[in-house]
Simulated assay, not measured.
Amino acid sequence: MNIENLIAIPALCTHYKVELSFFNNLSEMGLLEVKTIEETQYIHPDAINEIEKMIRIHQELDINTEGIDVVFNLLQKIDALQNELNSAKNRLRLYES
């Protein structure tokens, strides 16, 4: 992958005013995929929306990284249940017609 397509984590730390350890903890918990190139850590730009959510949860709600992991797992389960509900509704419409 080309470095030009990646975002340096130190730049994110400065921009969002968070410690590098925050990103390291997210990476250790499997919430963030970090690529290290020439001793600098990078993330893919597609992950920025999720990272912004995590930072808001951390800063505004004062939730630690373990709590962020729980919140994101719950949000994923909610999304899966909503998809399952929509699928069931669509199948019901077939029988109602």
Rank of each mutant, 00 (worst) to 15 (best):
N49G: 12
S21Q: 11
E4C: 06
D79T: 14
E28S: 13
P10R: 01
N64I: 03
K53Q: 15
S97Y: 05
R91G: 00
V34H: 03
K17R: 10
S87G: 11
I51N: 01
I78K: 12
L75W: 10
I51Q: 00
T65A: 09
K89H: 08
D79P: 06
H15G: 05
N5L: 15
L94S: 09
C13Y: 03
V70Q: 04
I37S: 02
S97W: 01
Y16F: 09
F22M: 01
E19R: 12
N49I: 13
K77L: 15
Q41S: 12
R56M: 05
R91N: 12
M29Q: 13
N24G: 03
K17L: 06
S21M: 02
A88G: 04
Q82S: 10
I51R: 02
I57W: 04
Q82D: 08
S87A: 14
Y42Q: 06
Y42M: 03
K53A: 07
I63A: 05
E66C: 08
P10K: 00
A8D: 06
I3T: 14
V34E: 07
N5A: 12
A47D: 15
L20G: 09
N83L: 10
E33D: 13
S87V: 06
N2A: 07
R91C: 01
H44T: 11
H58N: 06
N5H: 12
G30K: 05
L61Q: 14
I3R: 12
M1R: 13
C13E: 06
R93Y: 07
D62A: 14
T14H: 12
S97H: 11
V34M: 08
H15P: 00
T40F: 02
D69E: 13
D46N: 15
Q82E: 12
R91V: 03
D46T: 13
L61I: 09
D69C: 01
E28Q: 13
E96H: 08
E52W: 03
Y42W: 05
L32K: 07
S27H: 14
E52Y: 03
Y95W: 06
L26S: 05
P45H: 10
D46G: 09
E28V: 06
Y16M: 02
I55R: 00
